[in-house]
Amino acid sequence: MDYADLDPETKALCEATIGAPFEVSRCVGHGFLENVYRKSLLGELEDRGVPVEEEVPFSIRFKTRTVGTYFADIVVGRRVIVELKVAEAFADAHVGQVLNYLRVSGLRVGLLFNFGLPKVAFRRVIL
Rank of each mutant, 00 (worst) to 15 (best):
D5R: 11
D5L: 06
L6Q: 13
P8W: 06
E9N: 02
K11H: 05
A12Y: 08
A12Q: 13
L13S: 04
E15Q: 13
A16W: 11
T17R: 13
I18H: 01
G19S: 05
A20N: 09
A20K: 15
F22P: 00
E23R: 15
V24W: 15
S25Y: 11
R26G: 00
R26S: 04
C27S: 13
V28K: 14
G29M: 11
G29S: 05
G29D: 09
L33E: 06
L33T: 07
Y37K: 06
R38H: 13
R38K: 15
R38F: 05
K39R: 09
K39I: 08
S40N: 04
L41E: 06
L42A: 06
L42T: 03
E44V: 05
E44P: 00
E46M: 12
R48T: 00
R48V: 00
G49Y: 15
P51D: 06
E54Q: 12
E54H: 10
E54G: 04
V56Y: 07
P57W: 01
F58I: 05
S59P: 07
S59N: 12
S59G: 01
I60H: 12
I60T: 12
R61L: 03
R61A: 01
F62A: 02
K63W: 07
T64M: 03
T64A: 03
R65F: 13
R65E: 14
T66I: 14
V67S: 06
Y70H: 14
Y70I: 00
Y70W: 11
F71K: 15
A72Q: 12
I74E: 03
V75F: 13
G77I: 14
G77V: 14
R79W: 10
R79I: 01
V80C: 00
V80L: 09
V80Q: 01
I81K: 09
E83M: 03
L84P: 05
K85Q: 03
K85D: 02
V86N: 06
E88M: 04
E88I: 04
A89M: 10
A89G: 04
D92M: 03
D92H: 04
H94S: 01
V95S: 03
V95W: 08
G96E: 14
G96A: 10
G96L: 06
Q97L: 02
Q97K: 11
Q97S: 06
V98P: 10
V98G: 09
L99I: 10
L99P: 01
N100T: 09
N100E: 10
V104D: 12
G106R: 14
G106I: 01
G106W: 15
R108A: 07
V109K: 09
L112I: 03
G116S: 04
L117Q: 15
L117W: 09
L117M: 13
L117R: 15
P118I: 09
A121Q: 14
A121D: 12
F122Q: 10
R123E: 08
R124I: 01
R124T: 02
V125E: 08
V125L: 02
V125F: 05
